[in-house]
Design a protein around this nucleic acid. Sequence first.
DNA 1: AACCGGACCAACCGCAGAAAA
DNA 2: CTTTTCTGCGGTTGGTCCGGT
Length: 284
Amino acid sequence: MVRAPCCEKTGLNRGPWSQEEDDILVDYIKKNGHGSWRSLPKHAGLLRCGKSCRLRWTNYLRPDIKRGPFTTEEEKLVIQLHAILGNRWAAIAAQLPGRTDNEIKNLWNTHLKKQLMSMGVNPQTHEPFYLEGSSRRLPVSSTTRHMAQWESARLEAEARLSMESLSFSLLTSPNNVTNTDYFLRVWNSEVGESFRKGKPVCFSPASQATASSTTTTVTDMGTKLDHEPDTPGLSCVTMKDDCITFNPGATNPSSPSEIEDSTDNVMQLFFDFNGPNDMSFLEA
DNA sequence: AACCGGACCAACCGCAGAAAA
DNA sequence: CTTTTCTGCGGTTGGTCCGGT
């Protein structure tokens, strides 16, 4: 099946947008919403294809877009999220309000990638480069070693989830999430926020997981709920005495153990990764 | 002043998945 | 269930700017 081009190319403007075109597009969307992107240019009187209009709006004209250079904090966040999510720019952008996937992608390709490489970190794998010709594998620094450890755990968890996907799909429910989605939920939660602010992290043996501690389940967009007893794939992360507490063994007995192991593994590394403090190299 | 090369970034292209017919 | 259409995403390109020679 041959796919038709997204729009009739002849007679349509291409290249940079003029101020007049921007004004027409903004006025139209403010009055009517974008509706169907394909029909928008015709209704708005623009000689552009719908795809071009959508791109212009989402990457440049949207009122909630934050212009200007990235802050150090934003750069740190992009690096951290890239280590977890890879080149999922849209997912990364969703964690940085006002920033677009295109902007983050450009930042990564022109700036952060080189920065990591200059530090001896492979920007794609987040693993340290090793000395060529050396029989021993010599990590460059504790930071890069840390990143490599983090990445390998992520890959391991991903592989395990893939292998389990068939049996896991039998439990199809809104609570079923991938490990990266799971991570994002934790990241967006109160726990994640506390973690980013550098609150202390405590590890508790399973036997010490007490019923009195507040067990946190992370839901969409970072809301926090009490733990639902039949929620699969979620381990116990608690906020106790202003300290993030992780109880590796306090898992839901009804959930698939392999998934639980994977998410626990990810959680362990989540805490093992020292957050902002460990990214101090960016400030150098 | 002219040229060159690198950095930056807006925009385009093609693919994949979702939704609709 | 199959086909078609639409949308969103990620990779890539090409134009512009800027600093160095």
